[in-house]
């Protein structure tokens, strides 16, 4: 069992979705992990890299490495940030990555990696799970989030039609190609609402910001909730 982990909360969760960070801490501590939060952390640079701003991305990447170097395990509740650090840093930073990419683990993979541990989560309601593109196709988390959800007491899991279709977020794509992004979102929201679930859940605050923002704009009763928040639920 891993006794200690540093949390990379991500700039997005830190600033807009603190509940996701708090839930991540709750889950980790419940599993007996002692959590630290290196305060110097800001952003991994994913958005800059994916948008073509390589200099900024490199600078932010270097900063990330400086902040987390020496940490044996860095847990993050964002699949796309974990994917960026793990899969792009080597190319972006070369030797300067100093082994940091390998230490970064996405939350659901971290928890699944601990083996059959009881998280002791309870949740009332039906949930549908949206596998975000980077968790599915870059990080390849497989069904670990689904297995975790199945263990949650009281939670009814319903399948999302066309689950592996992109929700249309894509970072700056959402504003640069807002019309296409919105069309993709509309289809995703239709699929979510067709399940009758109370909650749509994912491993990425960024996609959830897009999906949740769309649900809210529609006046939907479905809520977008991060996996960490469900796993932390002990109500």
């Amino acid at each position: 069992m891993i006794g200690r982990a540093a949390l990379f909360v991500t700039c997005l969760a830190d600033t807009l979705y603190p509940s996701v960070g708090i839930a991540t801490v709750t889950v980790l501590e419940r599993l007996g992990v002692s959590v630290s939060f290196p305060r110097e952390q800001t952003c991994c640079g994913q958005m800059h890299f994916n948008s073509g701003y390589v200099d900024e991305a490199r600078q932010l990447g270097q900063r990330f490495v400086d902040v987390f170097a020496g940490e044996p395990v860095v847990v993050t509740p964002s699949a796309s940030c974990a994917a960026h650090v793990r899969h792009q840093y080597a190319e972006l930073l070369g030797d300067d990555a100093r082994g940091v990419p390998e230490s970064v683990v996405e939350l659901s993979q971290f928890v699944s990696g601990l083996g059959a541990v009881a998280i002791g989560a309870r949740f009332r309601g039906t949930v549908t799970y949206h596998p975000t593109c980077h968790s599915l196709r870059v990080l390849r988390v497989g069904d670990s989030p689904l297995r975790l959800l199945r263990e949650v007491e009281g939670l009814g899991l319903v399948e999302l039609p066309d689950a592996d279709e992109c929700c249309g977020f894509g970072g700056t794509f959402a504003v640069k190609n807002a019309a296409v992004s919105s069309a993709m979102l509309a289809d995703k929201l239709d699929a979510i609402e067709s399940t009758g679930a109370d909650v749509v859940c994912a491993c990425d605050s960024s996609c959830l910001m897009h999906i949740g923002g769309g649900l809210r704009r529609r006046g939907s009763r479905v809520r977008a909730v991060h996996l960490a928040e469900i796993l932390a639920g002990a109500s």
Binding site: V9, A13, D14, P18, G21, A178, G214, R217
Partner: peptide, 19 residues
Amino acid sequence: GWGESRDLPGVPAQTFREW
């Protein structure tokens, strides 16, 4: 373009780091 189809939460009273 974000506002075409999406709302966005504002920065809450307490960020994660403040918590």
